[in-house]
Simulated scan of single mutants.
Amino acid sequence: MELVFTKGTGKHDRMDVIRHGAPVESIDCPKQGIIPHDMVHYAVESTLHRRGFIGRVLEGEAASFQMQGDAQSDGVERLVEVFQADGWSGWNSSPADMLDLYLVTCRARECAPLSVRAEDIEAVRGRLLELTERWQSLAAGASLTLAFEP
C-alpha cells in the first residue's frame, strides 16, 4: 500500500491511499503546524509494527474517521496524540515524560496502553524528524509517497 501526502495551499493537506486492486481513497488532513496526523500514524505504526489506523486501512477498512474501537488501534491512537503534542512543542520532550503522558492519556480514555519503552519513543521520534524534514522541504502542491507494508 502507498500513502501519498500532498501539501495543500489552504487549511488542508491530503492523503491518498493506494491499494492494489482497490479504488484510491482520499482524506483531507487539517493542517496542524507539523506533519499531517496520518503521517504521524505512519511513523508510529511502521516503526513499532503496531496496528492502528493505517494498518486497519491496509487490511481493507475504509479510510475514514468513523472506525469502530479496537484495543490495539486505540492504544496506537493515544500514542499518536502524544507524539503530536511532542511535535507541537518542538519534538524535544523526554522519553520518560512522553511515556508518563501516554499512560495518563490511556487512563483518561479507558484504553489499555501498549508496551512502549524509551527506546521505542526515540526510534519513532527519529522517523518523525526525518519525515518532518522531508515534508517541510515540499512546496505547496508537491507530494510525499510512503510505502506501508504489513
Rank of each mutant, 00 (worst) to 15 (best):
V76S: 04
S73Y: 06
G69F: 12
Q72E: 15
E81V: 05
Q72M: 14
G75H: 10
P95H: 03
S73L: 06
G87F: 07
D97M: 09
S89G: 06
G69R: 15
A96T: 14
A71V: 15
D70E: 13
P95C: 03
V82R: 09
Q66K: 15
A71H: 13
A96C: 08
L99S: 03
A96Y: 08
N92M: 05
G75F: 12
D70M: 06
S93T: 07
V76I: 08
V76K: 01
S94R: 00
S89R: 08
W88G: 03
W88F: 11
G69Q: 14
M67C: 09
F83Q: 01
F65Y: 15
A96M: 08
D70N: 12
V80H: 01
W91R: 10
M67T: 08
S73F: 11
S73A: 14
D74T: 03
G69W: 10
S64V: 14
P95M: 00
D70R: 09
S73G: 11
M67E: 14
S89N: 13
Q84I: 06
R78E: 07
F83T: 00
Q66L: 14
D97V: 05
E81K: 13
G75P: 12
D70T: 03
A71S: 14
E77P: 00
M98H: 00
E81Y: 11
S94Q: 01
F83E: 01
V76C: 04
E77D: 11
W88Q: 10
A85C: 06
D70W: 12
S64R: 09
A71C: 09
N92T: 10
Q72G: 11
W91V: 04
D97T: 09
W91T: 00
R78T: 08
S64I: 10
F83D: 00
Q66P: 03
G75R: 13
